[in-house]
Amino acid sequence: MNDELQNISNSTFTGLSEQERNAIDHEVSLVPYPKAACIEAMKIVQKSRGWISDDALLAIAEYLNMSTAELDSVATFYNLIFRKPVGRHIILLCDSITCWVMGYKIIYQELYKQLNIQFGETTADKKFTLLPNACLGCCDHAPAILIDNDLYQDVKTEDISIILKNYN
């Protein structure tokens, strides 16, 4: 499955879309009080908008009857709620122990060479954001990369350019 971002722009944020609200309503219906669905709500909004802007944060908080401080407290705790703009595709490169042993560094260097970005950075064309990630759970096929929903295992430097071509 490839859940391409619907690319609703955050810069023109005009409130949660109906689709988003419906999806959040569903999550709220599963928990004892609305706040408890806040992580799900942020996932829903992030899926359509790429990241959680201040406006989006406010909208979600209001929708769930919580304060922005409380929501941001949760948002900033986790790795994968993005409070800053990210590229269209997120490259998660495993830097945990087995991938480290098996040479994730070389992959990192290759990515840097091709994309000219370091961990935490986004390419100038807003295509990729590169992030380090804890063990992807395929240590028997290290090193590994997860790009959006696609897992690449036993990655070699020469694979990188081919892999990156899959994304636009």
Partner: peptide, 17 residues
């Protein structure tokens, strides 16, 4: 409502949003 803790590990921050 407007004071909380943000981020994690040794970057935790206490303040407003």
């Amino acid at each position: 409502k407007d004071l909380d803790v943000y981020a994690a590990h040794n970057h935790v921050y206490f303040g407003r949003e």
